[in-house]
């Protein structure tokens, strides 16, 4: 990667770390448990948005199943704890691993599909998984939801666990994207046939992106499961995936900071609009349309353009 693109990536990392520093400072001013909870759920979406952005923004593969893999991760740790009393230190990595393995398998199957076919296949997978989990009463307790051991009830502890994990994710994504893997993923996104002709093993790298993306969704799921101490099939609603996609596009797709920013913005706004009922998704959908039409690079792209404007 050349200096200018490395510089851009570093700027994005710094911006996202600055944002997380601000988030880390919030509890100094806000002690209200409800709002801390809202911020924690926002960070749950940061993982989903970050993972989806890696797959869609950098590798160009549009999956419609990020929320599903969060649900699978959450049920992974939840079921292990519920049926076999597996301790959290083992069930949490197992949940992430389960999501990643299922993601890798699905990734291998859908790898040859492109564009709308990929989206539709992942969408059907998402609905099938949600319905299977919802209907397997004996095993998953279906729509009643599954209670998961809460590791601690101290909101502040959870808050900083989420903050620290988001920071780790950002550092890991940064390291990945500035390595040759980042170049390969972007090359596949821009021109898959061209990438293969240059000797990039497109099948391998697409599967790798799919696996990593679902692992991040699984991570979101296991953390959420133990934080909320309840998992239900609602985690995998297509509506949740819709929110994730809105977050990435509004914040700025194919940037490190955009999805983080977008997740906070969209989730906080959806909390604020809760009173107004079902208008949230209409508002976000309109925003996405406007952004797709006028500033493809989202709010982060807009901010960068303003910052980079040459001095008069």
């Amino acid at each position: 990667m050349t200096r200018s693109s490395q510089q851009r990536l570093r700027d994005e990392l710094v911006a996202s770390l600055a944002l997380m520093a601000a988030v880390a400072a919030v509890p100094l001013a806000v002690t209200n448990d409800y709002w801390l909870g809202v911020l924690i759920v926002s960070m749950y979406f940061v993982f989903l948005a970050g993972g989806w952005n890696l797959l869609a923004g950098y590798a160009g593969q549009f999956s419609l199943a990020p929320a599903t893999f969060a649900m699978l991760g959450a049920y992974g740790t939840g079921l292990l704890a519920y049926h076999w009393q597996v301790p959290a230190w083992a069930s949490i990595p197992a949940g992430i691993l389960a999501a990643a393995l299922i993601g890798m398998t699905l990734g291998r199957i859908v790898m040859r599909l492109r564009g709308p076919y990929l989206a539709l296949t992942t969408l059907s997978f998402a609905e099938i998984m949600r319905i299977v989990i919802g209907n397997s009463y004996d095993f998953t307790r279906g729509d009643l939801g599954l209670s998961v051991p809460a590791l601690t009830n101290n909101r502040l502890v959870w808050y900083y666990v989420f903050v620290a994990t988001v920071v780790l994710m950002q550092l890991a994504l940064y390291a990945l994207l500035r390595s040759r893997a980042g170049l390969y993923l972007m090359a596949i996104r821009d021109d898959e046939i061209g990438a293969a002709s240059r000797g990039i093993n497109t099948a391998f790298w697409k599967t790798a992106a799919f696996t990593l993306s679902t692992a991040l969704a699984g991570l979101a799921g296991v953390l959420y499961a133990h934080f909320s101490s309840l998992v239900s099939p609602e985690l995998g609603l297509i509506l949740q995936t819709g929110l994730v996609i809105c977050m990435v596009f509004i914040g700025g797709i194919a940037s490190l900071v955009g999805p983080v920013f977008g997740a906070f913005l969209v989730y906080l706004a959806s909390e604020a609009l809760r009173e107004a009922g079902g208008v949230q998704l209409i508002v976000f959908a309109l925003l996405v349309i406007l952004i797709a039409r006028f500033f493809r690079e989202g709010l982060w792209g807009l901010a960068r353009r303003l910052l980079e404007r040459p001095a008069p």
Binding site: M1, L183, M186, D190, D191, G194, A195, S197, G199, I200
Partner: peptide, 27 residues
């Protein structure tokens, strides 16, 4: 065996230098 296409296949959203670096790393 490396080829160049009649209708160009460059990686459009990567810098020109990154295009070359990618091709080099891939091999």
């Amino acid at each position: 065996i490396l080829r160049m296409f009649q209708l160009t296949r460059v990686f459009r959203r990567m810098s020109a230098l990154d295009n070359l670096v990618t091709a080099g790393c891939a091999l």
